[in-house]
């Protein structure tokens, strides 16, 4: 089995301002995730879960160490090249949904496929929205949808471009328990169907237990 994600000696240091002492968030972290695997990254607040996710997805660059995403190294790539690598390969689900308010549900879901240059972005998006049960809400704007519905639109967007890797950052953080549970069921069902690699960041042990593997982040390193 090939590695979908691989991190070696990953270090992330941040400084809060000029002259301030650097804060080390990740210190020599090692990680390997196989294609098709579902991995939960857990840890207490401020342990660096989200930082790790941002580095693995190429949204940020490490202070030291290397990352391979879908077989390609990230640290030697420009922001543009990393974006191109994500396009069509990587999907995201965020805690705060991150839908564009002025775009309809359909337009929001079409975005990744369009950016990946798919000619049939619309068909893909319609199918994805139908798959999350929002076939009747294509032309609704985010403000016209409930929180759960917005997250389902976000799920549809994450899967519409048929990504190989899906990153989810506290996907139920903004939802009530019942709605959150339904969203998670949907997330795992879709992921099973597509066979995508899932990296899920959460502080919820129950949610983490549904993944194939759980990694705990503490002191800037992973145990698990």
């Amino acid at each position: 089995m090939t590695s979908a994600i691989e991190a070696k000696g990953l270090v992330k240091r941040v400084t809060s301002g000029e002259g301030a002492e650097a804060l080390t968030i990740l210190s020599g972290l090692e990680l390997q995730i196989q294609a098709g695997e579902s991995v939960a990254i857990v840890g207490s607040s401020g342990s660096g879960k989200t930082t790790l996710l941002s580095l693995l997805a190429g949204l940020d660059t490490p202070s030291a160490g290397s990352i391979r995403l879908d077989g390609q190294t990230l640290e030697d790539k420009s922001e543009d090249a990393r974006a191109a690598l994500r396009a069509g390969r990587v999907g995201f689900v965020f805690q705060s949904f991150q839908l564009l308010n002025g775009f309809t549900a359909l337009e929001n879901v079409m975005l990744p496929a369009e950016l990946a240059g798919r000619r049939n972005a619309r068909e893909l998006a319609v199918a994805a929205l139908e798959s999350v049960g929002l076939g009747a809400r294509l032309s609704h704007y985010p403000q016209q949808l409930s929180g759960g519905e917005q997250q389902r639109v976000a799920l549809a967007r994450a899967f519409a471009a048929e990504p190989k890797i899906l990153f989810a950052d506290e996907p139920t953080g903004n939802l009530d328990t019942a709605t959150g549970a339904r969203i998670i069921d949907l997330l795992f069902a879709l992921n099973r169907e597509r066979g995508a690699t899932l990296v899920l960041v959460t502080h919820d042990a129950q949610l983490a237990a549904r993944c194939g593997r759980t990694l705990r982040l503490s002191g800037g390193r992973l145990d698990g």
Partner: peptide, 20 residues
Amino acid sequence: MAESTALKAPPLALAESAPT
């Protein structure tokens, strides 16, 4: 708001598309 989605995973893969 309660969710009432049927949890099925419909076929998503449509014909592979060329970049435009």
